[in-house]
Design a protein around this nucleic acid. Sequence first.
DNA 1: AATAGTGGCAACCGCCCCTAA
DNA 2: TTTAGGGGCGGTTGCCACTAT
Length: 287
Amino acid sequence: MARQKQNDGAYIRKGPWTAEEDEVLISHVKRNGPRDWSSIRSKGLLPRTGKSCRLRWVNKLRPNLKTGCKFSGEEERMVIQLQAQFGNKWAKIATYLQGRTDNDVKNFWSARRKRFERILQKSTSSNSQKNKGKSLVHHEFPVDKVSSHPSNCFLNSEELGMVDLPDLVKANQLLNVEAEQQPMLEATPINMIPSSDFPPHLSLSQLPQPQLDLSFLSGCKEIDQDPIVLNLLDVFGQDIPPLGLEENVQGNKLGELKDLSTPDIFFDEFPPEMLDYLETLTSSSEL
DNA sequence: AATAGTGGCAACCGCCCCTAA
DNA sequence: TTTAGGGGCGGTTGCCACTAT
């Protein structure tokens, strides 16, 4: 157990909490409510900082938490859509998910992000091998424009030199979202909920509808008959227009993408199923 | 069986804002 | 008006368990 000596000579305990510490913290909250965190140390109840106590209560000890329970599909979609609306305001997003903390949402999002980064990296490395000695025909983009796109902030310059990749093109085409979002449905703010411990569990239909342009899927034999993609199109209420992929790609060069304010916009419109699907694409392209 | 890769999670860090003195 | 302390929050790190090779 890590300990750190403070200026006042007292030791601050760090690291995992024990059951005994939890009990002390719970009894403090029972007596005083979830406040006066710093008094827990000043009264000598626990050698923990007020911040540490608050965090422990909020993330683990608070009643009605869904501890150890994976995010459901509905919850995933809500996080994705609320993130698109609010940005990385995890605490705010968490208020719309019953029993979830900001830490839960944050961890979920960063795991998803990491996973996507890995998919893109796999795509770049596998295709750079595959395309050795071949001329690049349809999927070549100006690297400077690609690299300047916020969504590619996690690719280094070497990797960006290899952006002539069908898989990455497919992924990047998902970026082709309208920057000018239609007016979002306002989710009910938490402070408008009367006498309720938790905000309402919004249904998907109440949330802003995603502005995902899936038209790039047209003419792409590999995927436009895929059940997952078809399901996606169904979910997002879109038909595949009669355009060839190549034509569509040319007509939507990445460099012409509208400026997107944050790299996370890349994920904003990205349904969980598509991550799964891209992962199968990249792994199959390695065979 | 050993090792590397990955996901999930808990907890800390640092910054910012608010409020009381 | 200034300033210090508390609390809130997003970002990051580190640990552990599980899985694939």
